[in-house]
Design a protein around this nucleic acid. Structure first.
Lengths: 329, 329
DNA sequence: TTTTAGCACTTGTCAATAAAAAGTGCTAAA
DNA sequence: TTTAGCACTTTTTATTGACAAGTGCTAAAA
C-alpha cells in the first residue's frame, strides 16, 4: 500500500508526463509538495522499487511504468467532465435527427478523434446477432444481378452475382421462398437452412438449380461478420513517442489496416469502460486502448479509443462515458 | 536537344537513383561508358544547366530533377514487361469467376500494391454517370426502414430513415411511383424529378407527404458521388525518402484519408496511361501518380498508383497496362 | 575540337573530445 | 523523519580533425 504522499507524487508524475513526455525530476516536484527534493527522491526510489516508476537512464528523472499507469487509472485518476465547447460539438451530431444510429456513432467518434488526436474505432454488432430480415434481387443485365440482404438490425449487404441460363422467374421464386421460409434466421445459420430447406424445393423445378443455389450460398457465406470503422488513423503520427519511432507506427498502422486484427481489439464483453494499457492490449505494447460496449435497442457494438500509453486517461474516459450515455438513449 | 551520350548518362543516373536513392557520381558512370570521369562530369554539368539534374550540395553526385524524371519518362524509358511470377499472381485474381468486376479491380490493385510497395487507388464511376435502376424499401420496425438504391451499373447504396405517422401503404406507393416514373434518370437529377414529378402526386393523397418527400429527397442527395478505395496506404512508410520526413508522410496520409481529396487525384479524362510527377499532381510535390481510366461495359473508373518520385516508372506503367487490358475484356 | 589527367576545393560523415545540464543516490547532520 | 551537500552518471550539444566522395577548372593530349 502506498502512503498518501507517495500517491500524490505518483499522480503528479503521471499527469506531468502525460502533458509532456519529459522524465520528471525530484526538484520540480518538491516545489509542489512542501518538502525538499531529497525527500521526494527517497519516495521516488520507493515507488520505483514497487515497479510503478522507471528511469530512462541511471541519472534521469522518473517516468511512469505500465504498472504505474495502471495504478493511476485504478486509484488516482479523477474523472474529468467534458468542457462545454467539446460537448457542444458532440451535441450537434447527437441532435441531428437525419442520421441513422450507426452514422451518429461514427460521426461522434470522428469528432472525439479530432479533439484528442487519438485514433477511434467502431465495431458494429457481429453477424450471429443479426437475423435475416429480407433479401431482394435487382437485375442489372441479362446475366448480372444484385442480391441485397437486410438484417433485422438494419445492416445491409449486397453482392453482384452472375447467372447464365437461369430465368428471372426462377430467381424471383427462389427469393420469395427464402423470404418466406428462412427470414428471421440468424445470418450464420442461413447457409445451412439454404441447403436443407431451399435446395430440395428448387431442385425439383428449377433447371439450373445447382448454379442458383451456389450463388445464394456464396452471398450468405461471404456476409461480413462485423462492421469495422477506423477514424483518425494518422493521428498516431501526431504523438511524439511515435513520430520518432517509425517501426512502432508501422506496426500499429498495419494492425489497424487489417479488419480482422481490429476486431480482436475487443478484449471481453464488459459493459463498462475498460482501459487496456500497453501489454494488456493486443495492438502494441506502446499504446493504450480504452473501450466500451454500447447498446441501443437491438443494435450493439464496441467503441474504442487508441492512443499512446501516456494518453489523457481522465479526459478520454469522460468522453467515452458521455458518448455511451448519448448513444444509449 | 540532347546528344546521344547525354541521353545515355541521364538514363543511367535516373535508373541508378531509382534503384537506390544515392546521388550518382561521375566516376561510377565513366566505367559504364567508355570515357573518363572528366568527360562525364562535363556532360553532367550540361545536363544540370538544362535543368534535368540536380546536386544535393556543391560537391555531391547528381540526382534527377523533376524535369529529369519527366524527360526520362517521355524519352528514355523502355517499357518493362511484367515477369511471369507477378503475372501469375494477377491471373489468379482475374480468373476468379466468383468476383464482381469491382472486386476484381480492387483485389488486383491490392496485389500490385504488395508487389511494388506503392499505394494504389481505385475510383469508381461518378454519380452523374449512374442511372437509377430501382429503389427498394425494407421496414425494420414501426418507424425505421431501409431505403436501398440500385443503379444501372450495379452500384448499391442504402440509408436508414425514420418516418412517424406514415403508413406502410403510402410508402410502398411512393416507392412504386419512383420506380415507374423516374427509373432511368441520372442519380444527380433524381432530386429534381422527385420534386416536380413525385411530390405533386403524393401531395394529393398522402397525409404526411412533406415528411415522406423529405426523407426520400435526402436519400438521393446524400448519394455518394464516387466510390473511393485506397489500398496499401502505409506502403508510403516503406519508402526511404518518406521514412525520414514525417511531415511529408503526414501530408500524403491526410490527403489519402479524405475521399474528396482522393477524387481530385484524377487530372483529366485521358484514356491512356498518364504519369504526373511531383508538382504535376495534386497530392504532394514529392510523389508521382501514375493513372489510367478503365472501361468495361457500362462501368468505368480510374486506377492509380502513388509512389515516390523515384518510383519504378517502367515497371508500374507495364503493370497498369496489363491490368487495364485484363479489366477491359 | 574533343577528351582526359591532375589538382585544388567543398561538403558530408564519422569518431573522439570536452563542457554543461539535469538528476540521482548516499551520507551525515538537523 | 527530513534535509543539505556532494560525488557520480548520463545525456546533450558543440568542436575538432581526419577521411571519403565528388566537383570544377586548367592545361595537356588525342
Amino acid at each position: 500500500m502506498l502512503t498518501e504522499r507517495q500517491n500524490r507524487i505518483l499522480k503528479i508524475i503521471v499527469e506531468r508526463y502525460i502533458k509532456e513526455p519529459i522524465p520528471v525530476g525530484s526538484k520540480s516536484i518538491s516545489k509542489e509538495l512542501n518538502c525538499s527534493s531529497a525527500t521526494v527522491r527517497n519516495e521516488m526510489g520507493e515507488l520505483e522499487n514497487q515497479g510503478l516508476l522507471e528511469k530512462t537512464h541511471t541519472s534521469s528523472g522518473r517516468v511512469p511504468s505500465e504498472a504505474g499507469y495502471r495504478y493511476y487509472v485504478d486509484n488516482l485518476m479523477e474523472l474529468k467532465k467534458m468542457n462545454a465547447e467539446d460537448m457542444l460539438k458532440l451535441q450537434i451530431v447527437f441532435k441531428n435527427q437525419q442520421l441513422a444510429l450507426s452514422d451518429v456513432i461514427t460521426k461522434s467518434l470522428q469528432v472525439i478523434s479530432d479533439m484528442t488526436n487519438y485514433t477511434a474505432v467502431v465495431l458494429g454488432s457481429t453477424s450471429h446477432e443479426n437475423l435475416l430480415k429480407q433479401i431482394e434481387v435487382v437485375p442489372i443485365d441479362d446475366v448480372s444481378m444484385i442480391v441485397i440482404i437486410v438484417t433485422d438490425k438494419g445492416h445491409v449487404e449486397h453482392k453482384q452475382i452472375h447467372l447464365e441460363d437461369v430465368s428471372m422467374g426462377d430467381i424471383k421464386k427462389t427469393v420469395s421462398l427464402i423470404n418466406n421460409l428462412i427470414s428471421g434466421t440468424p445470418i450464420d445459420d442461413v447457409s445451412k437452412k439454404l441447403e436443407f430447406e431451399i435446395k430440395p424445393i428448387i431442385g425439383k423445378y428449377v433447371k439450373q438449380h445447382e448454379q442458383l443455389y451456389n450463388a445464394f450460398y456464396h452471398v450468405f457465406s461471404d456476409f461480413t461478420n462485423q462492421e469495422v470503422n477506423v477514424m483518425g488513423r494518422n493521428k498516431m503520427l501526431e504523438q511524439p513517442e511515435f513520430s520518432t519511432n517509425l517501426e512502432k507506427v508501422k506496426n500499429v498502422f498495419q494492425k489497424l489496416e487489417d479488419d480482422v486484427l481490429v476486431q480482436n481489439i475487443v478484449e471481453d464483453d464488459e459493459n463498462n469502460i475498460k482501459v487496456y494499457i500497453g501489454n494488456e492490449n493486443k495492438i502494441d505494447s506502446d499504446v493504450t486502448v480504452i473501450q466500451t460496449k454500447y447498446k441501443n435497442g437491438g443494435e450493439e457494438g464496441t467503441i474504442a479509443i487508441i492512443g499512446p500509453k501516456r494518453m489523457e486517461y481522465d479526459r478520454v474516459v469522460g468522453m467515452l462515458e458521455y458518448i455511451k450515455e448519448n448513444i444509449e438513449r
